[in-house]
Design a protein around this nucleic acid. Sequence first.
DNA 1: AACGATTACGCAATCGATTACGGCCCCCAG
DNA 2: CTGGGGGCCGTAATCGATTGCGTAATCGTT
Lengths: 344, 344
Amino acid sequence: MTGNRVTLRDIANRLSLSMPTVSRALADHPDISSATKDRVREVAQALNYIPNYRARYLRAKHSRLIALILPEMNMFFVPSMIAGINRVVQRNDYSLIVFQSDNSIVQERRLVEYCTHLSADGVLLVLSSETADLAHLNILHDCGIPVVLLDRTIETTKYSTVTIDDHGAGREAAIYLIEHGHTRSVGIFGDQRQRISSQRLKGFRRGYTDKRIPVADSQILRVTILSELEEQLESAFAAHADVTAVFAMTDELLVHTHYLLMRRGMRIPDDVSLLAISDGQAPTFLYPNVTHFRHAGVEAGERTASILIGMIEHNSDAMIDVRIRTTLVELGSVATRTPSARKH
Amino acid sequence: MTGNRVTLRDIANRLSLSMPTVSRALADHPDISSATKDRVREVAQALNYIPNYRARYLRAKHSRLIALILPEMNMFFVPSMIAGINRVVQRNDYSLIVFQSDNSIVQERRLVEYCTHLSADGVLLVLSSETADLAHLNILHDCGIPVVLLDRTIETTKYSTVTIDDHGAGREAAIYLIEHGHTRSVGIFGDQRQRISSQRLKGFRRGYTDKRIPVADSQILRVTILSELEEQLESAFAAHADVTAVFAMTDELLVHTHYLLMRRGMRIPDDVSLLAISDGQAPTFLYPNVTHFRHAGVEAGERTASILIGMIEHNSDAMIDVRIRTTLVELGSVATRTPSARKH
DNA sequence: AACGATTACGCAATCGATTACGGCCCCCAG
DNA sequence: CTGGGGGCCGTAATCGATTGCGTAATCGTT
């Protein structure tokens, strides 16, 4: 360690110039002669000058820091989403600060506040499951820090949001199953306090309603804790011997459902068809590959980050709501059943 | 947006006090009377004062920022590692800045430099696959910024490292297979430019050597791109009809190998046994569950972050090398074979 | 020759907070 | 009565960089 860092003053002293001149020289300001610029650059290089962004951004109002607050790390979706966000963020010369709220509203509140301390230029927020309202975001609004809500949100007219078309995906999944002859299926959904879960569930039911096919409540699983899945699935099978298909709302539910079906000795799609909403990774390494409605995490991340940076740079308060549509990827885990060909 | 943020000066003016007094009052300095402290706190609250860390840390030498540079996002290992890092980082009141080098040494170099601009207090680095030496880290050393190399490293005596006991895990995996009667197996390894791949491979071979069982080169797969896996696996099976077990070096290789085995119609573990090194997630949702040598990503992240923060706070240059041992988790994907019971 | 314009740079303030140092007032002891 | 010592607070400098404004020197113009 060479002691303290080289500053503009050091360069200035070395060249008998003033700090402002050195600053302007390094910034390629037109007021400075190119001869001086060259000398400054040379000395800066020689002395190994390292700019102090902390000092620079103290004067500027911005920090070029973007915060991402996640409820939790998850091997599905989150990594690709971060990858997408990071790509856009880095490309625009911002840095991404990642926080975890651990699904706690207290933590989330604390972190939001912390973002103001850090003078983040913008905040990307995936709400914790405990978050019921958005009052704790007022502080960001007061500071003029734009926010984009991502993936897991609640209804709002105040903040921009980027979400999957959850309702649409659920509905299309149902219709896809019905059109392949699966009039009796089991739908597996997550914690209903989360909008993505309730929306996908509503969409799923809607699909059946639209096709005028009844769905019993026992066909709809609401899995709050993963460990409940097995029992709920067994009950559903027990209640409905004529089930020919299973729909899983997320990758996490998918992989565990897939496992349970396999363990049950069920062949996919011969004994039971399997359909999911997924970011497309798990379906390609499960056997057989799983037909799914795909939402690209990378894309979602990129769009979200783009919107946020747009808001930051145009100082815009415009509320943008992006609903990302899913695309069907058919990989053969859903069989076509004719009404007569039902199991047994 | 209410215009500009409330500063210490605003509070000072409101109370006809000086900025330093307000600063000290908020910091609970003994020089300030409790009456004044109360008044200051009250006004700070009322005015919605938000401290500016950027200004605060300009005087202090530190920033309470820790940077993490990753080669890429990956659904396996990385999320749990980040989770572990983040937990420790947040608990110690630091913030985590995440960068992706996209496996490019140019990017990595740029990001390392960027860390100095931001005055990061420490850097956590997972080397890109292109990184062959550590010269680009000198700048960090010059700035007195501690570094801990994580997971994917190269040999160094200059920086602290946290790695899995790759060689040991590979060796134990081999021995485990042998002791279960699998004298002929296929080992699937990653890009040999990476230390973790070469070490695991070496360890695996070593296990066989120790047990005095020959291993043909065609039993060892080196998979640089995932799409090559299928072909290589087929060749291996074609070359060795007596293969009774497959070992996958990582989760990523595991899930795809599992898929290929299933698609081949092979029953696990009846037709072929499957063993892996894994962080323990994938093995529990693949059917059947996969016996593996487990390395906890969360733990690795936590240890790494702890070491880095220790170095930061004790201003220590001590070189620490942590080699995380893997633990065997038996989940039944490896059958016990007696010599006579080999397949056919 | 004198004056306005241009070039190239320095001075001083500023961002918001922290800290070394100094000073006032009051109380108590000598 | 006086001096020493706390208690409590203000002054000024500082962190490193940026920016508005001023200015000396040079140049060109009529």
